[in-house]
Simulated assay, not measured.
Amino acid sequence: MNIALLLKTSDLNPKILEDRGAYIQAVRQGVSGKIVEQAVKALGERELFVRLLSTSSGNLNRLYHSKLLSKVQTEGVLDTLKVFDEAINVFGDENLAKEWLHTSIPALNGESPVSLCDTFEGRKLVRETLSAIEYGEFA
């Protein structure tokens, strides 16, 4: 689930999740479907990306070969990577982050964070929850 390694081995700027300018530029240009393939492999979250990209499991494989994803698809993929990266940073451990992402959280109406990552508002809510955890508001 190493997001940094995923970014280093892609054609993306490794600072894309930290640098708003680079992030916006990447969204405007679109990223290749190869990024989706690498993200699915790195995170092990195939079903999440199927929901996120509003496609079927079979069509997800076709997206892997897309030269450029649309702005909406690109932003969804990059924003999801950002959520996973933030979880790793908050918990300081990839395994703990992944466990939390797949746990039913009372503050998220009993849903798991990963189940909310297929929408912008869901990802925003997960980031807000991570921020609250980081600042000791709740665990």
Rank of each mutant, 00 (worst) to 15 (best):
H102F: 09
R62M: 03
I88S: 10
Q38F: 08
L52V: 03
N89E: 13
P106Q: 10
T74P: 02
V114T: 12
S57Y: 07
P106T: 08
V90F: 04
R20D: 13
V126M: 07
L78H: 03
R62I: 01
H65D: 02
R127M: 14
L60G: 01
L48S: 06
L108V: 01
K41S: 12
E47M: 13
S57P: 03
V77R: 03
A107N: 08
I3A: 03
L52M: 10
L130H: 06
N13M: 05
L52Y: 10
A97P: 00
K98F: 10
S131G: 10
E94Q: 12
F120L: 12
L43M: 14
L43T: 15
Q38L: 15
L6I: 00
L5C: 06
T129M: 10
D11I: 01
I133A: 06
A107F: 11
E94L: 07
K124N: 11
V83R: 09
E137L: 15
R28F: 08
L52G: 04
K41Q: 12
F49I: 01
G58P: 01
D85F: 13
T119R: 11
V90K: 05
E111T: 07
S32F: 00
A26N: 02
M1D: 07
E47A: 14
I105F: 04
L60P: 01
L43V: 07
R20S: 13
E134V: 01
G44D: 10
I105M: 11
G76H: 09
V50D: 07
N89L: 10
V126F: 08
S56H: 05
L5W: 07
G76D: 09
G58E: 12
L130N: 05
V36W: 03
N109I: 03
